[in-house]
């Protein structure tokens, strides 16, 4: 027996360890959306009715695209734009269908990303634009992987219509960011072929494992997310947000967004200072709706690279 015979046996046995690690790592890989960002869409049972499943699929899709649109918007804001201070940012806006679709199809691009990066370049097919419109209503874009209805991350993402309560638009950046990451820029350009959109992601998307439960309900006849639950437990009051457990160890900062009247405000909080976060308009800003309650609140826990580790929030008054 050679000197290394035992070592060879040991290496052969190591295969199963290695394969397990690969399988585990691949669970966050590009081909398995369910393991990348798992969406548990929980409809309000009493309101369920025939045909609801399609609606929920749509809601799941819009969750992703709502997030993507938010990423695009955030990236589009120049760093030296005085309207976008790091710690507070009034963002009165309503991301509607047309706005989001235009953002994608007309190629509103993100600023150049300075990170060393390769480009995953891809193109995908979408349904034909309706007559006399320049927007693509719904469909799936692929960023270089085999098509599937849930092909997210580096190999594609779902492109659908955002609608419903505005918390969807805001909250579900938590879906897109783990996939795309704040350091990624997304660049989508329409082509002469109305069926084709070209999309670039730089650098390639880095999927992260995260599970969020999105509760969907109807309001004013429209389905939308009313609550998002991650692993962090939280309580929301009329004037404050309390994180009661499970803030990830690698959390570097916490973003809190809330809507008051017609304005959306953003606060940045240290993860160590989360016992009770006052939902107040930041100093130096004007509360245009002092008598209005907080409509909804969303928190996202970010690591040092700006990737979302966890998220949660609720719409009130539904």
């Amino acid at each position: 027996m050679s000197r290394t015979a035992n070592l060879e046996v040991r290496l052969a046995a190591y295969r199963s360890t290695l394969d397990s690690a690969i399988a585990e790592r691949s669970a966050t890989d590009t081909s398995k959306l369910d393991d990348i960002v798992e969406l548990d869409v929980e409809p309000m049972g009493s309101r369920r009715r025939p045909g609801r499943s399609g609606l929920l699929v749509g809601a799941a899709g819009l969750v992703i695209v709502g997030g993507l649109a938010t990423v695009l918007e955030l990236r589009d804001r120049p760093a030296d734009d005085p309207s976008s201070p790091a710690s507070s940012m009034p963002t009165p806006r309503a991301t509607n269908v047309e706005e989001t679709a235009d953002t994608v199809t007309e190629g509103t691009s993100a600023p150049a990303n300075t990170a060393p990066a390769s480009t995953i370049a891809g193109s995908g097919t979408t349904p034909r634009c309706p007559a006399d419109t320049g927007t693509v209503p719904t469909g799936t874009l692929y960023l270089g992987g085999p098509p599937s209805a849930q092909n997210l991350a580096a190999t594609g993402f779902i492109f659908s219509l955002p609608s419903g309560p505005p918390v969807v638009d805001i909250a579900l950046q938590a879906i897109a960011m783990p996939v795309l990451g704040l350091e990624c820029s997304v660049d989508a350009v329409s082509t002469l072929d109305p069926d084709v959109i070209t999309v670039n992601v730089e650098p390639p998307a880095t999927p992260r494992p995260m599970k969020l439960t999105v509760t969907v309900a109807e309001r004013d006849g429209t389905a939308g997310a009313v609550a998002i639950e991650g692993s962090t437990q939280f309580e929301t009051g009329s004037t404050d947000l309390r994180l009661t457990s499970s803030i990830p160890d690698d959390a570097a900062r916490l973003q809190v967004r809330f809507k008051k009247g017609e304005d959306v405000w953003e606060l940045t909080v240290a993860p160590t200072d989360t016992a009770s976060i006052a939902l107040e308009v930041p100093d130096g800003e004007t509360d245009r709706f002092p008598s209005d309650p907080v409509d909804w609140v969303l928190f996202t826990v970010l690591d040092e690279q700006g990737r979302v580790l966890d998220a949660g929030g609720r719409v009130t008054g539904v």
């Binding site: 790592r25 692929y142 270089g144 580096a154 190999t155």
Partner: peptide, 17 residues
């Protein structure tokens, strides 16, 4: 494992394109 899996995913994405 980490870099290798990512590299494989990137290579396959490139392959698709």
């Amino acid at each position: 494992v980490d870099v290798g899996c990512d590299a494989a995913a990137a290579a396959l994405a490139w392959a698709w394109e």
